[in-house]
């Protein structure tokens, strides 16, 4: 059932945000500490649990994948509601600080990628998984 997937996703998100708020309160800050991250970890755990018990049906998958697929349009809507005028108008100090911080961090990401040694790219991983999926039926045949 599709609604089970949507409900599972909603439950994970709610619980994550709640735990994030509680963590914030426990630490004495009026903010959510890592709520979305906690929710993501719970959803990953839930998927593994369902998968192991064979309960991960097409409907459940669809209920979650649908919202994942709407992610980019939601980000576009989010971009369309930013206070762009305010950020541009606030003056040179804001621009200097933001551009400096972003440029430095972009540079460090590039550096850390160079030092880490080779990693499988998303394209390679996808090709490998497709290859494995294709090889599997042949491998299990008597």
């Amino acid at each position: 059932m599709t609604i089970y997937g949507v409900a599972l996703l909603a439950a994970c998100t709610l619980l994550g945000v709640l735990l994030g708020d509680m963590l914030g309160a426990a630490l004495g800050i009026d903010a959510n500490v890592g709520g979305v991250g906690i929710a993501m970890v719970m959803l990953i755990a839930a998927r593994l649990w369902l998968l192991r018990r064979g309960l991960l049906g097409e409907g459940v998958r669809f209920g979650i994948a649908f919202w994942g697929a709407l992610y980019i349009p939601i980000v576009v809507a989010m971009a369309a509601t930013q206070n762009v005028v305010g950020a541009v108008k606030a003056g040179p100090m804001v621009a200097v600080a933001a551009v400096g911080a972003v440029a430095l961090c972009f540079g460090v990401v590039a550096l850390m990628g160079r030092f880490g040694g080779p990693v499988e790219t998303m394209d390679e991983a996808e090709a490998r998984q497709l290859g494995e999926a294709a090889a599997e039926p042949a491998g299990t045949a008597p």
């Binding site: 996703l9 994550g16 979305v36 809507a77």
Partner: peptide, 21 residues
């Protein structure tokens, strides 16, 4: 658009992407 791009649906959709992790 404020509702669609607001924190609730944004977090909901971000969490949904974790399904592919």
């Amino acid at each position: 658009i404020g509702l669609m791009g607001g924190a609730m649906l944004r977090d909901f959709a971000i969490v949904a992407t974790a399904f592919e992790v």
